[in-house]
Simulated assay, not measured.
Amino acid sequence: MSDIQRETMDYDVVIVGAGPSGLSAAIRLKQLNADLEVVVLEKGSEVGAHILSGAVLDPAALNALIPDWKAKGAPLNTEVKEDNFYVLGEAGQIRLPNAIMPPLMNNHGNYIVSMGNVCRWLAEQAEELGVEIFPGMACSELLFHDDGAVKGVVAGEFGKNADGSPSEAYEPGMELNGKYVFLSEGVRGSLSKQVIAKYNLDAACDVPKFGLGMKEIWEVKPENHNQGEVTHSMGWPMGFKQSGGS
């Protein structure tokens, strides 16, 4: 595919992925040097489209990055008021006392948030600083200099056949080159796999361990809703040999 002609754009920094880490990096770079040309590429149709999880957010990093986030309208509105811990069994549940849980399970001072909304807000802050954000721009491959250093990425490429050859509907996309390229794709990113393989970054490393997560959305009766409550569970339907919980 090296003979394909693509439009090229050059930046100081190219960031792949408009999640919390990619957007935070873009914001911090512009805070350090407003003259840097920074672009963030997001495969989703909009920022936050692939950030579906609810979360409990520790605001420590946000305090450091944007100290006046409250005044700027960050979507951190529900402070954690209570943590509950349960061991589940087929016959019912047993509540564990909070005092025996490790400190990292204490969510006092944290916030219950939608990470999609948090990322949308972070994108607004980044754009106000002059960061360019391109949603709907999936990155298909890394580009390299002759000496093997990362040069940039190919984004917006469509219409390849299963064997990698171009189909009749092929669109070559664009080359976005950067002095620095940040891969903020999340777990098992396709470009991360490429760079790990090229530079043999997993040599002498332990085998990776992966977990499976599932999301459910529950409708809760108003009389049963306790705003600010975080409930943790472990046990059934998992056995004693499997780690996990909710």
Rank of each mutant, 00 (worst) to 15 (best):
63 N>F: 00
5 Q>G: 03
76 L>T: 06
115 M>S: 05
156 G>D: 11
196 I>C: 02
126 A>S: 10
231 T>I: 15
83 D>C: 11
141 E>K: 14
9 M>G: 00
161 N>S: 09
62 L>V: 05
41 L>D: 02
173 G>Y: 02
124 E>Y: 05
15 I>Q: 03
73 G>H: 07
228 G>W: 10
198 K>I: 10
195 V>F: 06
204 A>I: 10
242 Q>I: 04
78 T>H: 04
31 Q>E: 13
9 M>D: 12
8 T>K: 15
118 V>S: 03
219 E>M: 10
171 E>N: 07
126 A>V: 08
13 V>W: 00
191 L>P: 05
22 G>M: 05
40 V>S: 03
179 K>T: 06
117 N>A: 10
241 K>T: 04
99 A>P: 00
28 R>A: 15
27 I>M: 11
179 K>F: 07
216 E>A: 15
130 G>S: 03
225 H>Y: 14
78 T>V: 08
97 P>Y: 00
179 K>S: 12
4 I>Y: 05
37 E>N: 12
93 Q>Y: 02
15 I>L: 07
150 V>G: 11
229 E>P: 00
22 G>P: 09
215 K>E: 11
224 N>C: 09
146 D>R: 12
19 G>F: 02
100 I>D: 01
167 S>Y: 02
105 M>Y: 12
242 Q>T: 13
172 P>W: 03
144 F>C: 05
39 V>F: 01
173 G>D: 07
9 M>E: 14
122 L>A: 10
65 L>G: 09
133 I>W: 04
208 P>I: 13
91 A>S: 15
79 E>G: 13
13 V>F: 06
178 G>L: 03
159 G>Q: 09
221 K>L: 13
234 M>R: 14
162 A>D: 14
102 P>V: 03
162 A>Y: 05
193 K>F: 09
7 E>W: 04
6 R>Q: 08
9 M>A: 12
64 A>W: 03
201 L>Q: 12
1 M>L: 13
71 A>I: 07
60 A>V: 01
150 V>N: 07
